[in-house]
Design a protein around this nucleic acid. Structure first.
Lengths: 209, 209
DNA sequence: TTGCGCGGAGAACGTTCGTTCTCTATGGTA
DNA sequence: TACCATAGAGAACGAACGTTCTCCGCGCAA
């Protein structure tokens, strides 16, 4: 090529790097689906190899261990979640609607085919007793959501106590929808959130007992 | 003894039955603690044998399989839960306080040493992908709780929509407390429940936007 | 064309799992 | 005392796990 500094071995290294990137992505995509659908421990590495089309040798050159793959999947899901929430919130202009957009986002998610609850909650139940790093990632993910809600509440001029209440509604909707196998919990949580928001944003005289 | 109809083999059978009962109980108690603390799949049958003091041979005469033990533990936890909720609710007289007693019950539970979330939610996350009977038991347990709340709401004269909202708050508090490792979610859920109850029981003019 | 290094497929390894079986001892019954 | 059913301890089993290794073939440099 035109660049005299780029040697043949450089070009090889670059090609390998992009190959590795796409292989990583294929492994992570397959792991995400398998782990989410059936649980981490129920999926063997050989099944992950078959689903991803990447040989075991290569998988273990790309990742240190199965647990490292689990952690990477959690990180990826975290980014997807943050992006999804952010997009849903951005679509609304009024502060109150921006808060409620969280529950509309949940409703669309619950209606997905193959929805099986929150992967973080599921992983916590399965692995928190034996995998401290997983526990840490789950905790960080949920703490991040609490912060997001707290920021939205502050922007709406609501009191700080409102934020954890709205977050708890979202968490409860996720487990309720997953276990019941229906999506109605999203609307129920949304209705409760409306009430809580309206009461919190109303003058104090209406809040007293 | 005095009863001429009681033969020697009858007496043997009776003795065996009570021995079996206490052995079953020991296995179930050990299984409950181990499965809850570390997850079902992380605990081997040999560890259950060591913790219960019952030989593997006897365990497998008392239970058909490891999964049968898991199901029995879930059934036992379900009874404990119903009894606990029932006792907490009974301690209050006013309909509103009876509803809020649910969250006080949660608060005491969250403060227990070794609290690690709801065993049903955890088991769902770990096993629902592979064990349909477990999924069924978890679903039945949560449906029972929804019914309990619905009954309390009806007794308080609240509208039917209030019940799932309060149930979702309880579910969310459980996962939030488990993952965060703190018990404050119980109080936050209780505060939200107070607001929702008060609004629902107040004349309609205050509920409109 | 001849080496050479990296690739993939999948066999193999050592563990560990859930479950069953063997062996020995023991306690009650005739 | 002799017998028999049952108990417990734990070895053994086949399967499956996560991880590593062996083998073979392809593609590039000279």
């Amino acid at each position: 090529m035109g660049d005299p500094g780029v040697t043949s071995t450089d070009r090889q290294a670059t090609a390998r790097r992009t190959d590795d990137d796409s292989a990583r992505e294929r492994v992570l995509r397959a792991a995400d689906r398998l782990f989410y659908d059936r649980g981490v421990q129920a999926v063997g590495m050989d099944e992950l190899r078959a689903a991803s089309g990447i040989s075991l040798k290569r998988i273990y050159r790309l990742f240190a261990s199965k647990e490292a793959i689990v952690e990477e999947v959690l990180r990826h899901r975290h980014e997807l979640w943050e992006a999804g929430i952010s997009a849903a919130v951005s679509a609304a202009a009024e502060p109150r609607e921006r808060l409620l957009a969280v529950y509309d986002f949940l409703a669309r998610w619950f209606d997905d085919d193959g929805f099986r609850g929150c992967f973080f909650i599921n992983s916590f139940g399965e692995l928190s007793g034996t995998a401290p790093r997983v526990t840490e990632l789950v905790r960080a993910h949920k703490a991040g959501f609490q912060e997001t809600v707290a920021r939205l509440v502050a922007e709406a001029g609501g009191p700080p106590e409102l934020a954890p209440q709205l977050a708890i509604l979202a968490e409860g909707a996720q487990t309720t929808a997953a276990i019941a196998g229906t999506s109605e919990a999203a609307g129920q949580a949304r209705a409760a959130a409306e009430t809580l928001i309206d009461v919190a944003l109303r003058p104090a005289r209406n809040r007293a007992a």
